[in-house]
Design a protein around this nucleic acid. Sequence first.
DNA 1: CCGTTGACGTCGG
DNA 2: ACCGACGCCAACG
Length: 124
Amino acid sequence: MTEFRRRVLSAVRRIPAGRVATYGDIAALAGKPRASRAVGNIMRNCREPGVPCHRVIAAGGLLGGYGGNLQIKRELLRAEGVEVGMGRVRGFERARWRPTPVRDNRRGSGRSRPPTAGRGSSRG
DNA sequence: CCGTTGACGTCGG
DNA sequence: ACCGACGCCAACG
């Protein structure tokens, strides 16, 4: 059990029913906004009880994957009130879990983009 | 919107 | 310990 791992599981557990979160969000909550992949891996072997890995979807509201049982994932979400379309969540932005509701005075900004380091750095 | 690219972290053989 | 695969994401052209 690594620090990252437990953080991810913890973040997923924090996802309330009727809402969804993306791998990137979970990864970010875990402290690694770039470890979205790792989150997927952790979810894959999601054997931990109480971890609603079905509430974790891909970016853009895409269901993502569920060991090929996307059907199950879809039903689970729908059972919680999350409308799911053709492999995509309806009102994804609405159902997107907001651990930090940016209900600040200013609007439009506030979302700091991660320093996508590497882009054009050393390739090959 | 599509294809390509760079990066993190974990699992399985 | 090494390598490939993965339920991915953001950015560029």
